[in-house]
């Protein structure tokens, strides 16, 4: 057991006691080719027998799942980004001249002479599209992303589970064992992504298992197998990371960036990571997730020191008493 096994880069399966563990397996979800078909959601439910999540029209574009939950282990987010709102280079320059340099910076990020609204607010516009240079509609984007449990290197849910229901598999994934979970719910707030969730009827915690039963038999997880466009790719994490690095390089002028791939991030890197085309917040992902147990050693240390200090103080007081 390394000193850093609650934080920092490591290979989680050997760390969790697997001798001769197979390579760490994971998902690379390339949102640049996601078509939002939701095959992943259905394939997951069919394989894992996950109940439906209610029939509610949410109005979040085509997302009627509403994020990950005990009853939705894959959830496709849809983000409609309206066209670039005209600001005009002259305005930006004027603003800049007036001392507001962020106007230019924003203009640069949204394309020349423009600023971008991050999210569709449902507000009616008044402009009429057509051949007017100030209404360049072609920049409208519809982003889609199939979200899933990240199978963190340092999994808060697992670290706080008092029953051993959550455990690290030999593939480095994080799985809730339904025969062990007693529904205490400690894991729920421990997840920095808000993924794991309790089922209302049975109280137990449920989330993606990365199809532990399938991958053990050498099969591909149900979602990745179904995915029509290979937006969801399953494989050895090292290989996926290499593939992702290539892909992000190719798409960098479209604003591509990776999310959850970095072993030095707050969760030691994710077993399920993403290529995004915008900031993580746009997709509803936390920008800088940190495992809740990161500070545990330090806390223990401080707690220990505090204990010692208190003991010392007590001793002193005794001593003092004797004085």
């Amino acid at each position: 057991m390394g000193a850093n096994s609650l934080y920092g880069p490591l290979d989680p399966a050997p760390d969790a006691g697997y001798v001769d563990a197979p390579p760490r397996m994971g998902f690379f979800t390339d949102t640049s080719v996601c078509i939002g078909c939701k095959a992943c959601e259905v394939a997951c439910k069919e394989w894992n027998g996950v109940p439906d999540d209610g029939f509610n029209l949410l109005g979040h574009s085509y997302d009627n799942t509403g994020g990950l939950s005990a009853n939705s282990w894959r959830a496709v987010a849809f983000i409609e980004q309206p066209a670039v709102v005209p600001a005009g280079p002259v305005d930006a320059l004027a603003e800049a001249a007036a001392g507001r340099s962020d106007a230019l910076a924003e203009a640069g990020c949204g394309g020349a002479g423009t600023t971008r609204e991050p999210e569709f607010l449902g507000m009616p516009g008044t402009d009429l599209p057509g051949r007017t240079p100030d209404a360049p509609r072609t920049d409208f984007r519809w982003l889609m992303m199939s979200n899933v449990c990240k199978h963190c290197t340092h999994a808060g849910c697992l670290d706080v589970c008092p029953t051993g229901a959550l455990f690290r598999t030999e593939f480095g994934t994080v799985v809730v064992q339904e025969d062990v979970c007693n529904g205490c719910g400690y894991c729920i707030p421990a997840c920095p992504y808000g993924v794991i969730d309790q089922r209302k009827d049975d109280g137990r915690a449920w989330k993606c298992t990365l199809c532990y039963d399938r991958i053990g038999d050498g099969l591909t997880p149900a979602c990745a197998q179904a995915c029509p466009t290979q937006s969801i790719q399953y494989g050895e994490l090292d290989e996926l990371r290499a593939r992702a690095a290539e892909r992000v390089e190719k798409l960098k002028d479209q604003g591509a960036r990776l999310y959850g791939h970095d072993p030095d991030d707050g969760v030691g890197g994710d077993g399920a990571f993403f290529l995004l085309l915008d900031e993580p917040e746009v997709y509803g992902l936390p920008p800088d997730p940190i495992v809740a147990t990161r500070d545990l050693p330090a806390m223990w240390k401080r707690a220990g020191l505090a204990g010692l200090a208190m003991a010392a103080a007590v001793a002193v007081s005794f001593l003092g008493g004797r004085r």
């Binding site: 057991m1 096994s5 989680p12 399966a13 760390d15 969790a16 006691g17 697997y18 697992l158 670290d159 051993g164 229901a165 959550l166 455990f167 690290r168 598999t169 030999e170 799985v175 064992q177 339904e178 025969d179 062990v180 199809c211 532990y212 039963d213 399938r214 053990g216 038999d217 099969l219």
Partner: peptide, 17 residues
């Protein structure tokens, strides 16, 4: 730490597709 191999239940161990 009981977070991996030691915690694997019999059911988990015998899971098969």
């Amino acid at each position: 730490l009981g977070r991996g191999a030691a915690s694997q239940s019999a059911r988990s161990k015998n899971l098969t597709a």
